[in-house]
């Protein structure tokens, strides 16, 4: 009973996080301007990191945790680089 309960709730939360990723992806693809796309990418990587944490709970494997930490690190750096590029790119224009 307990196992069924927890397995289904982990599965449900994975589906919900997947939907959240789809929303962020939609904003990234459609976003009218460049800053909207970067915001979508930022939300996308945070949601992906949370999804990896739930996978780690499901399989009790610490490798998922390492992957989540790396996504958090690299996502932050890439968002900062994109935001900086938006400011510098317009100066040259």
């Amino acid at each position: 009973m307990t196992e069924l309960f927890i397995i289904w709730s982990i599965l449900l939360s994975q589906v919900i996080l997947g939907l959240a990723m789809a929303c962020a992806l939609f904003r990234m693809v459609r976003g009218p301007r460049a800053q909207d796309r970067i915001l979508g990418l930022d939300a996308l990587y945070i949601n992906a990191m949370l999804l990896l944490l739930t996978f780690g709970m499901r399989t009790a494997n610490t490798i998922y945790f390492e992957a989540a930490l790396i996504i958090a690190l690299l996502g932050f750096v890439s968002s900062i680089a994109f935001a900086k590029f938006l400011m510098r790119g317009e100066v040259i224009e």
Binding site: E3, S9, I10, L12, I16, C23, A24, L50, M57
Partner: peptide, 30 residues
Amino acid sequence: LTDLPLWAAIPVCILLLVGSIITLIGSIGL
């Protein structure tokens, strides 16, 4: 996961579901 006792399973499930629903609401806001 079958070793998880019921008293721990309920808060784990509630935290997971509430957390993911809040994240979904944030993405819908996007």
